[in-house]
């Protein structure tokens, strides 16, 4: 059953009571929360995801709750709980939904070491995937959102999950998190795109989440072949330019963006080596989104011919 196939009132009720089992990429996440913000946004942004009321197994049992104490009434807060662990301090109650998103990111980065996990956006065209590792401010999410609205299948806005055993990229097409001015830019890019409400004053600035296109969610089980690693750099006034990067340099750059390279030890070294082996690496500077999109399309069509 899809989230959108349940009536909202029932969805909210189940989420607030026992919780619901959401299939998010390769993971089953049991989410419980009585926050209306969480119910509304999950219902809106995860509308195309599979959900179960009862299931025998979940990878992550999480909840977003109201912390105990006076803050229940005075400047209310929310707290992320991972099966009894509380890895974060409480946040203002208006963060309840993004807290789920951040908390789930944490769970994956901490526990899913069957993958080499790179902090990056991943998109795919013609069976070939591009990895966009992201230092903050590089324009990773903006580019990712724009590409996903222009025929590139979204695998993830946050994580490249490179399977240690299968050597391919596993999709986890969750909502794309856009910050500050990129919210406006992407909203103007394509009509009919659905966004969650703007959440202001987070530690990352103002945030809005973009709903992934339903086809991409539908294709969650189709893995992709890593083909390019592109390090985007948004810079006002810069010319659009794709510059090849030596593989050794690419390795070191991606390593900096890995969540679990060190934790995996020799397995991390081998996996990253295999990943880079399969990919051409580029630096990419841009200042105009449409030119950037053109460059990516050219890259994809060139490789089809070759």
């Amino acid at each position: 059953m899809k989230v959108k196939e349940i009536e909202y009132s029932l969805f909210k009720q189940c989420l607030g009571a026992e919780g619901l089992f959401l299939h998010i990429g390769p993971f089953i996440v049991k989410l419980q929360s009585s926050f209306t913000l969480v119910a509304e946004n999950v219902y809106l942004l995860y509308a195309d995801f599979t959900v179960e009321v009862k299931a025998d197994f979940a990878d992550f049992h999480v909840s977003v709750q109201t912390p105990k104490g006076v803050r229940r009434w005075f400047r209310p807060q929310c707290l992320f709980n991972f099966d009894g662990f509380k890895p974060f301090k409480p946040l203002p109650a208006n963060h309840a939904f993004v807290f789920f998103e951040w908390g789930l990111n944490w769970c994956i980065a901490q526990y899913a070491h069957q993958y080499l996990i790179v902090h990056s956006a991943v998109l795919e065209k013609n069976g070939k995937a591009v990895i966009l590792p992201g230092v903050p401010g590089a324009g990773k999410s903006t580019l990712c959102a724009a590409l996903s609205l222009n025929g590139w299948r979204l695998l993830s806005d946050e994580f490249a999950l490179f399977s240690l055993s299968e050597k391919h990229l596993t999709p986890i097409p969750r909502p794309v998190s856009l910050k500050n001015e990129s919210v406006d830019i992407i909203q103007q890019l394509k009509e009919g795109t659905i966004f969650g409400p703007l959440i202001e004053n987070t530690h990352k600035g103002s945030i809005a989440l973009m709903k992934p296109i339903s086809d991409y969610v539908e294709a969650s089980s189709q893995t992709a072949k890593p083909t390019w690693v592109i390090f985007p750099q948004f810079k006002a006034g810069a010319t659009t330019e794709l510059t090849p990067v030596m593989k050794g340099e690419g390795f070191m750059q991606v390593k900096k963006n890995c969540f679990n390279y060190d934790v995996l030890g020799h397995r991390g070294f081998e996996a990253l080596g295999q990943l880079i082996e399969k990919c051409d690496c580029f630096d990419f500077s841009y200042s105009h989104l449409d030119e950037a999109l053109n460059t990516f399309d050219k890259l994809a069509s060139m490789s089809v011919k070759s």
């Binding site: 089953i28 197994f57 990878d59 526990y111 899913a112 070491h113 069957q114 060190d262 934790v263 995996l264 030890g265 020799h266 397995r267």
Partner: peptide, 19 residues
């Protein structure tokens, strides 16, 4: 699905021993 969790933690212990 369960094995992945156990294995994932085993990788960490393996790394800890090496270190």
């Amino acid at each position: 699905q369960a094995l992945l969790h156990l294995q994932s933690r085993y990788y960490i212990s393996d790394r800890h021993s090496q270190s």
